[in-house]
Design a protein around this nucleic acid. Structure first.
Lengths: 210, 210
DNA sequence: GAATACATACCAACCGGTCGGTATCTACCG
DNA sequence: CGGTAGATACCGACCGGTTGGTATGTATTC
């Protein structure tokens, strides 16, 4: 009776893990619930016990991915520096350091899924957008602090945060096209240089004459 | 010879047009050949007369998209300036100017499709990669010329081209997440500033303000 | 004994793809 | 000039397999 190895209770987690891998590899639409069940070693009954629909699975997968991502970034210690600018650069450096190994291991489930579903599954689109925003919030706070510390105005923290995320997401796209992380790494190198340049510029915010 | 308005012969073009729209809206996997036939007003027989398979349609759609894109950029006249750097900036400006209207009208079929197929359809992945490279080649040439003209080394034209494309593709991802082009426009603004900063050599003041 | 956590069996709709047939145009022959 | 053989363009019924989803049954836990 004691220590009985219960197989029950883990079906949901196994399905979610399978979903993360599958969606990051083949995308949301190309991932069928049958394949997912097969990969997770459960049956369809288990799937629809834990998820009302495939879309519901997508929502849960987005949440799970975000959890995993936040754990990863928390462990990286990118916010441990004293200077806000150093934290921003540390974020970029960590993002670059992640770019190794197999493509599905470093790409973004939210970015992939939102592209497939923005026009067809409004709920999934909103979930992905919220997830990205949630991940970006602390970065934006650090950028705002860095801008304030150097007295730079004329540049919004939100805008620069968006730009950074664009380079990251675009890097993923190019990595998939190239079959490896090289283009993404190159793009991140330029991004770092931009941030350095931006904060090194002696006098900023002269954009009076467009 | 002349004149005779033949209704036949346009099925392929209609299918391709429908495919461009559908893939840019819902993606490759979520687009079924039956939906395509319905949208194009033809039957399945016509589809499989012109395309061996759905993957073949994907290849043809990529080629068609590239054709359309090249026509668009040729008409924009971004290479008409005298200075190579101005051409690069004109490319960025045109890319920014395009960011209007409905999302499927300005996003990239190649970037979308390659993400869905990089792991499952190697031929489509290669086609998309080649298409992106083909579009980028003239931009890279202008960047190389601009770097040479200012005597800037330590920066590769290919790398900077990749970075620019990453911002563009990432902008599309964020636009789909946000439901509008605003984040993409913001990212492009930063990209332009980066290129300006990069080419503005502090000790060599070449003030060619337009 | 009620709720939870699954498994099994099943379904209608849809998927990519095939196949036999037809209408139209072109090439060549006489 | 008419006839016809062949290629091209397209139609629409059909196929086996897969899709997301359901209905029901059963073992375990609280």
């Amino acid at each position: 009776m004691e220590g009985s190895p219960r197989r029950t209770g883990d079906a949901r987690a196994r399905l979610l893990d399978a979903a993360l891998k599958a969606i990051r590899t083949r995308g949301y639409e190309a991932t069928s619930v049958e394949q997912l069940c097969l990969a997770a070693g459960v049956t369809k009954g288990a799937f629809f016990h834990h998820f009302r629909s495939k879309e519901d699975l997508g929502t849960a997968a987005a949440a799970r991915f975000l959890e995993w991502l936040e754990g990863l970034f928390a462990r990286s210690g990118w916010r441990d520096r004293d200077d806000p600018l150093d934290r921003v650069l540390a974020y970029i450096d960590f993002r670059t350091a992640i770019l190794r190994g197999e493509i599905p291991h470093f790409t973004c489930l939210l970015g992939m899924m939102v592209q497939e579903t923005y026009a067809t599954h409004p709920a999934l689109r909103a979930t992905c957008e919220a997830g990205i925003q949630s991940h970006l919030a602390p970065l934006e706070a650090e950028i705002a602090a860095a801008l304030a510390a150097r007295g730079i105005d004329g540049i919004s923290a939100a805008g620069l945060t968006l730009h950074i995320m664009a380079v990251i997401q675009g890097g993923f796209v190019l990595a998939k096209a190239a079959g490896g992380p090289a283009p993404a790494i190159e793009a991140m190198r330029h991004l770092r240089r931009y941030v350095e340049l931006l904060f090194a510029t002696p006098d900023q915010g002269q954009g009076a004459a467009p």
